[in-house]
Write a protein that binds this DNA or RNA. Structure first.
Lengths: 187, 187
DNA sequence: AGATTCTTTTTACAAATGTTAAATAATGCT
DNA sequence: AGCATTATTTAACATTTGTAAAAAGAATCT
């Protein structure tokens, strides 16, 4: 499922006028590998959907990078805090592969929500999905050590393992690359 | 702010009919210290708001307990995943102090969302707030070690420190009580 | 191919956290 | 008050993870 409007329909029923209005507002853009969709300090003014490619949201602290999330084809990709509050982001969004994204601007999406109850509901469900995913991540970080987290990752996102550098994977798991390398060695 | 309906108004504008309908559906209940609002395996069928008291959501794994969140006066208290999916919860919700909560049942809240666009928007904002909070928690777990997380906790929730056992605090921080005790000792 | 750069692994040592058990302190009960 | 229970701290040792530096391996470029 890498078509935004189809994805929306699969998440929540949209009446025809809503669907038509939504379709009119969807924009599209492509990014090269390494390009920034959002830079630390900017406001995230777009609600992205990944059609092709792979991206990450991350932030840096004292030369160390931490990755909040990878975004693959068929997933919503936004820096939620900045998007919701329309405040400066502390995160980047960076293309890890050449990527094409569909997006709605913040003001378009907000207008659509005002105009169409069914789009407001769609948005509600998007955020609900994001919240559930984050809760799972928190649980996993609480209860499992890095070895288990790594094994969970290769079990649940084996495809990603092929596409993400081990450095980035370590930054996502919250350990150093050296530590990840160690974990991989003893198996 | 420990009145549910006022809290709702403070989050998102509600038109009068919506506000009136919402008010009609709000129920109230009190719990003794130690009582369960939700047990692992049950479906979370209520959307709680804490008027007085203190609660936690937690889960157990191999005798170890992990705490997802504390809920104080004036905050939403729900096991979001179970509530949203209406599936069995893997978490408990437990009163840490005698507590009184206001709540909406799932079916009432869903009906209200169908009926009133402004309540759908309110719900959207509730979930957005929850998502932002969880994202902050994830960042903190990624970038800070237990000592810093403990110091952040006493800085940002010093009131809670007085009300929560150190065991529970350790379970929230994701470390053992022994380790927390050590952190507290060296200061 | 050779040179360069980036990624990953390895090594050695330091620091943080976990585990188990015991000791101490605090709380609640009768 | 005295007893029992629970919460917290301390100690000793094991394991995990971090740090820094070097080595090995892969990818890129000309």
């Amino acid at each position: 499922m890498n078509n935004f409007i189809e994805f929306c329909h699969s998440i929540s029923r949209l009446d025809d006028p809503a669907s038509a209005d939504l379709l009119k507002k969807i924009r599209r853009q492509t990014f090269e590998k390494g390009e920034y969709l959002l830079k630390n300090g900017q406001v995230c003014s777009r609600f992205y959907f990944v059609e092709h490619g792979l991206l990450k949201t991350s932030f840096k602290k004292e030369d160390k990078e931490f990755i909040m999330k990878f975004f693959t084809e068929g997933s919503i990709c936004t820096q939620l805090e900045s998007y919701i509050t329309q405040g400066a982001s502390t995160y980047d969004i960076i293309a890890l592969e050449a990527s094409t994204v569909a997006y709605l601007t913040y003001s378009d999406f907000e207008s659509l929500c005002q105009l169409h109850h069914s789009i407001e509901r769609l948005y509600r469900k998007f955020v609900s999905m994001a919240a559930i995913n984050m809760m799972k991540r928190i649980s996993e970080m609480l209860e499992e050590n890095a070895t288990v987290r790594y094994n969970n990752f290769i079990r649940e996102q084996n495809d990603l393992l092929q596409r993400v550098s081990l450095g980035d994977l370590a930054n996502y798991l919250g350990i150093t690359q050296v530590s990840l390398s160690r974990i991989r060695a003893r198996k």
